[in-house]
């Protein structure tokens, strides 16, 4: 067969032989994956065991696990993890609440529902940078809209980003504004999958609204909610753009997330090896969260089937 192909079409025909076609189609993707992901990952993993600084031409020396030890014993790192946890926790809770309420609203028909739905979905389609700049301007105390509106009631300028709590709230609001629609979409998918006859049966049984929600609606959206929680936790854990633009980690370092801290160490201080070690610790955390996410996905698949 190969000889026939060779004799008929030469190298091209040989290459496109059905036996090789699969490998041929996959190869470009594998090459790109290796060049863009796997090689840099392995390279940076290797760097994390040296004392390499990208700004220096000095030959790096092997340092074993000392970078990991240094990172894990650095109080600043733990402070940044705490800050990240506070922002992640607050933001995901707010997104869940707003997303859930929006889903309940859009699960019912009302005039102009599709247009309103489209508008509500718009924030998650915007770039992080745009959202960051919008909210930085919204919060600006001299001419920002938040201060302007509150000025009618307080007769004073509202300085939202002047305190650690206010700055964290500012970031959480921006992140929740952007991503609550994503939670809404997931929950809405669960809500519309609930068979109507179940509600009809519950109504005949005169079940209360809460009972209907708890025994009919919630089981259908439970795993989707879990998905939303995990997905948003992973994403918010890596939050960088919005924080960097709105507060630059301030006041002081009170909103500096682990991603911003990592960026500063890698690209401003050029502690390349040390920041690689920290990046791998962050990666480990994200992998754990991703596994939880995959577990939730599988569970949802089992429920559906």
């Amino acid at each position: 067969m190969a000889n026939t192909a060779n004799s008929r079409g030469g190298f091209g025909a040989w290459l496109l032989d059905p036996k090789r076609r699969g490998a041929l189609l996959v190869t470009p993707a594998l090459v790109i994956l290796f060049v863009m992901n796997i090689f840099p990952l392995m390279w940076s993993f290797g760097l994390s065991f040296f004392n390499y600084k990208a700004s220096s031409l000095k030959v790096p020396k092997f340092r074993g696990l000392s970078n990991y030890e240094r990172v894990l014993t650095d109080d600043k790192v733990w402070e940044r993890f705490q800050t990240t946890a506070i922002i992640v926790g607050s933001s995901v809770i707010v997104q869940l609440i707003i997303g859930f309420l929006l889903a309940l609203m859009f699960a019912k028909a009302f005039p102009m529902r599709r247009i309103v739905l489209m508008l509500v979905l718009t924030p998650m389609m915007l770039s992080f940078v745009s959202v960051g700049v919008f909210f930085k301007l919204f919060y600006e105390p001299t001419f920002g809209i938040v201060s302007y509106v509150l000025n009618f009631f307080t007769e004073d300028h509202f300085v939202m980003l002047g305190s650690p709590a206010g700055a964290i709230a500012g970031i959480v609001i921006a992140d929740a504004w952007m991503w609550s629609p994503f939670v809404m979409l997931l929950v809405l998918a669960g809500l519309v999958s609930v068979p109507k006859y179940l509600y009809e049966a519950a109504e005949i049984d005169r079940a209360s609204a809460w009972r209907r929600f708890w025994t009919i609606t919630f089981p259908y959206i439970r795993s989707l909610l879990l998905l939303a929680v995990l997905f948003r936790t992973i994403e918010t854990f890596k939050l960088f753009d919005i924080v960097y633009i709105i507060t630059e980690g301030g006041p002081g370092s009170s909103t500096e997330t682990i991603a911003v801290f990592l960026y500063r160490n890698a690209f401003q201080f050029f502690k390349t090896s040390q920041s690689s070690a920290l990046a791998y610790i962050v990666l480990f955390i994200v992998i754990v969260l991703t596994n939880l996410y995959l577990y939730a996905v599988n569970r949802r698949a089992e429920e559906v089937s």
Partner: peptide, 9 residues
Amino acid sequence: MPPVSQTGQ
């Protein structure tokens, strides 16, 4: 100074 001075921005 303008209130933005209280934000460090």
